[in-house]
């Protein structure tokens, strides 16, 4: 489903702020894989997602989604294949637009935007049913501006938008990190449900090691722009947080397991 071959990225090359964010990443995801990604700050997790989505161009290497080489495609063209949820709940939705309008925009991801109505009546009914499933009371607020909603509600809507047009790949960048624990677990449950219902190939970055172990069939650990650990199947199921902490400290000579990781 996804094939990343020899992708590297250096920010601010040749300056004092030079930062090698990705160092020759090779990664292949099979259809239906749900991969959790962990790693410290600056390990290259977000950069990896930004390379896949085309926010920045890669320095070298190729990115292939479902057999198509998208390395040179601009961000808005790759969007056809990708569903994205961002860390900041404000990023995934248009605050000045209605809930129904946001969903309708997502429903047209990768299609030509014509002069036909932006939201049809039929769609509104479909959206109402989908929102009912979220159980956040949003089904009666289709015409409310998204900017009036809480972070959790916006993140739930973004998830819905990302999966509305069955994406070839769903990319979640610490999408529960900015939410309070109760809301975070609600959004995480919704994530599991949508991913398994739709059998969607998913990459989820998280700082919560318990979630990283509990969710998905594969776990990747990154450090200094490299994948240092890749585990799947039964082996992953038997993993404990203590194992990961040990791996962390081994990989980074003890710097790695910072307070944020211990606490989560």
């Amino acid at each position: 489903m996804l094939e990343i071959k020899g992708v590297s990225k250096t920010f601010n090359p040749g300056t004092i702020n030079e930062k090698r964010a990705l160092n020759g990443i090779d990664l292949t995801l099979n259809d239906g894989d749900f991969v959790t990604v962990i790693g410290g700050n600056g390990a290259g997790k977000s950069t990896l997602l930004n390379m896949i989505t085309g926010v920045y161009p890669v320095d070298c290497g190729t990115i292939i989604i479902d057999g198509m080489d998208v390395t040179k495609l601009p961000e808005h063209k790759r969007a056809k294949y990708l569903g994205r949820v961002f860390q900041d709940p404000m990023t995934g939705t248009a605050a000045d637009m209605e809930i129904a309008e946001n969903l309708a925009i997502a429903a047209r991801r990768g299609k030509r935007r014509t002069l036909l109505p932006g939201v049809t009546h039929k769609e509104k009914n479909e959206f109402r049913e989908l929102l009912k499933k979220l159980d956040l009371g949003l089904e009666d607020r289709l015409t409310s501006k998204v900017g009036l909603l809480s972070g959790g509600q916006r993140q739930a809507i973004t998830l819905l938008m990302a999966t509305l047009q069955h994406p070839k790949l769903l990319l979640l960048d610490e999408h529960t990190a900015a939410l309070d624990p109760a809301t975070a677990s609600k959004v995480l449950n919704l994530t599991e449900e949508l991913v398994s219902d739709g059998h969607i190939t998913t990459i989820m970055i998280t700082h919560n090691m318990k979630d990283a172990i509990r969710l998905g069939n594969r776990l990747i650990m990154m450090n200094n722009g490299e994948i240092i650990y890749d585990i799947q199947g039964e082996e992953k199921k038997n993993l404990h947080v203590s194992d990961l902490l040990e791996l962390f400290s081994k990989a980074s000579n003890g710097e790695f397991a910072n307070d944020r990781m211990m606490l989560s």
Partner: peptide, 21 residues
């Protein structure tokens, strides 16, 4: 319209607009 919506989305949130193609 669909086109009009995409212009409004661009003005409201460019990251969201690009993420939606």
């Amino acid at each position: 319209t669909e086109m009009g919506h995409s212009i409004r989305a661009t003005g409201s949130n460019q990251a969201m607009a690009r993420a939606n193609g």
